[in-house]
Amino acid sequence: MNFFRLLRKATQPGDRWLMALSALLLIGYAGFGAGQRGTLVTIHRDNQPLNRLALAEDSSLLVAGRLGSVTVEVKGGRARLLEYDSPRMIGTRTGWIEKAGEIAVCVPCGILIQIQGEEANPTSSKLNSHGLDGIAR
C-alpha cells in the first residue's frame, strides 16, 4: 500500500526500533499500569468479611442479613445486591457496581459488598470521574 511504502522510505532502523519500543511500553501501560477493573466482589456483614465471589463467572449467593436473606448477584462482570424491603439502601451507587472500590450497601441488613480490583488503592469511579473526594447529602 502507498502508506506503508512511504512509511518504509521515511524511517530508518532507529525510527522503527523507537516506534516498536514505545508501542510496546504503551500497550503494557494501558493493559496493566493504570487498570482498575474489578476481579472479585467481597461481601461483608456488620463489617466482617463473609464471602467472596469472582466477577468472571455469573453467580448468585443468598446471604443472611439482619432482616432476612439478601441475594448478591454477579452477572456480566458486575455485581449487585438484590434487596427487597429496604428503601434506605445507601451506597455510592445503587444497582450494578463493577469498578474497583465501588460499594453497594443495605444498611438495615448490615450487608456491604465491595469490588476488589488489581489496584492497591481503589477509588470509586464516580468520585474519580468528577474529581471529588466525597459526596455530601
Binding site: 463489617n47 472500590g101 460499594i103 444498611v107 456491604l112 488503592n121 477509588t123 473526594d133
Partner: peptide, 17 residues
Amino acid sequence: QNKKRTTTRLLMGTLVS
C-alpha cells in the same frame, strides 16, 4: 495515586468513610 487512602465501614446506621 497511592498517597490517598480511603477506608469505609458501616457505622451509626450509615456508611462512614
